[in-house]
Amino acid sequence: MDLIDRWRTALRDAACTSDAVDGAGEALLDRWREPHRRYHTLAHLATMLSIVESAAAPVRLAVWYHDAVYDPHALGDANERASAALASAELAALGLPAPLVAEVHRLVLLTATHAAEPGDGNGALLCDADLAILASPPADYDAYAAAVREEYAHVPEDAFRAGRAAVLSHLLALPTLYRLHPEWEEPARANLARELAVLRPS
């Protein structure tokens, strides 16, 4: 199933009957194809969609929107807030029920912290999928880290190291990185610690 078919399926499962589904999907795909992206690309989208393939429609739709707005110059959680706002506006325009739209909005915002609360199955699955790359083999992880650095090529090296180290430290401080895929925990923490040691040499 190609990406636009996955989009159509998610909207159909959300009981969407709008004739604007394909146009909205193609516009989203264009966002994911933006030339400044190196890691937050269609490949990241496809990987996440594969992980959440059997999930409820709000989770799949949150995957589509969670990095729909991605500006490496943005500060704090500005990208997540803008992506959540985009999701709310577009899904409402497609006629989806307000509670479903609100859940997608909540889930997209959650990707700013990846701190899903106990009992939040939708949030846990989305966060696990978003962080799956951290548990990849070391060579794949290093390629991911290099791609992120390319996205932030405008940031001086010292500033990037400090900011990236803060992100890694935040992730390592989480009680658990994965609520639904505990087998990913050990390799992910090893990769994070290895990169952090390079950023902060003793």
Score class of each variant (00 low, 15 high):
L3I: 02
I4S: 06
I4M: 08
I4G: 03
R6P: 02
T9R: 15
T9Q: 15
A10L: 02
L11W: 02
A14S: 03
C16H: 05
C16S: 06
C16A: 07
S18E: 01
S18I: 00
D19T: 15
D19R: 14
D19N: 13
A20R: 14
A20Q: 14
D22P: 08
G23S: 03
G23T: 03
G23D: 06
A24T: 07
A24H: 10
A24C: 10
G25M: 08
G25Q: 06
L28T: 06
D30V: 12
W32A: 11
R33G: 11
E34P: 09
H36G: 11
H36F: 10
R38F: 13
H40A: 01
H44F: 02
S50D: 15
S50G: 15
I51N: 04
V52M: 06
V52L: 07
E53A: 14
A55H: 00
A56G: 11
A57C: 04
P58D: 05
H66K: 07
D67S: 08
A68Y: 03
V69L: 10
V69M: 09
Y70P: 03
D71A: 10
A74N: 03
A74V: 05
G76P: 03
G76D: 09
A78D: 11
A78I: 08
A85T: 14
L86D: 03
L86E: 06
A87Q: 02
E90R: 13
L91S: 08
A92M: 13
A93T: 07
L94D: 05
L94A: 07
G95L: 08
P97V: 13
A98I: 12
V101G: 00
A102R: 10
E103S: 14
H105C: 12
R106N: 05
L110E: 01
T111L: 01
A112Y: 01
T113H: 06
A116T: 02
E117Q: 15
P118G: 06
G119E: 00
D120S: 07
N122H: 15
A124W: 12
A124I: 12
L125D: 03
C127F: 00
C127D: 01
D128K: 03
D130K: 00
D130G: 00
D130R: 00
A132Q: 07
I133K: 08
A135K: 05
S136Q: 11
A139C: 12
A139W: 12
Y141I: 03
R149S: 13
E150S: 15
E150T: 13
H154K: 11
H154L: 12
E157W: 11
E157P: 05
A159G: 12
R164A: 11
A165L: 10
A165I: 08
V167S: 14
L168S: 06
L171K: 07
L172T: 02
L174F: 06
P175S: 09
T176C: 15
L177Q: 06
R179I: 13
L180F: 01
E183M: 12
E186H: 14
E186S: 14
A188E: 06
N191A: 11
L192A: 01
L192R: 01
R194L: 07
R194D: 07
L196P: 03
V198D: 13
R200C: 12
P201F: 04
S202Y: 13
